[in-house]
Design a binder for these strands. Sequence first.
DNA 1: AGTGCGATTGACT
DNA 2: GTCAATCGCACTA
Length: 186
Amino acid sequence: MDTVELARYLIGKVVVHDIPEGRVSGRIVETEAYPIGDPAGNAFRGKTARNRSAFLERGHAHVYLVYGSSFLLNVASEATGVGAGVLLRALEPLEGIDLMQRSRDSACLTDLARGPGRLTEAMQVNFTQDGADLCAAGPLWLAAPPRDTGAIGRSVRIGLTRNVDPQWRFYERGNPFVSGPKRLRV
DNA sequence: AGTGCGATTGACT
DNA sequence: GTCAATCGCACTA
């Protein structure tokens, strides 16, 4: 499975974070792929302290900061040393909704984890989880889908200035927790 | 040492 | 719909 396939595969899976206050979890409803050799990917220009976790074995968390304020959660997607990932852009909250509301200081359910920066804030993900193995026992992990996954839509990625053409964004169609444009562009 | 720029968000018209 | 805040990091000199 390559990076783009993984981005599609992750739709409907569940992110779980066990924190001292309890458990928060949510269904993944929107992802973006940043594959090998993608000029928009932050691993493109080689390994640095900032992106080193993107070079870990597939399934490890890569957390980094953009715009000085938003943490973004990626899943490393290729073999060790390659450098590629899948960005988790939106979740449908499942467990610990009250904790998410407190973390986000918002009561609106659809706003809790709609957007990559909001997602990490709701899930209390930050540099502490950078490099964590999401497929192993640990506070932050990926779980199986709780129900059948709906039809999956596809579009260009959001917010990029480089390599904007490929349709490497995936989302569950009709799901109210998806951010951004929901239309299919072919 | 200085500069420019985001895989965004929240506030505002 | 538009727009600016914000700051760590990569890059240049």
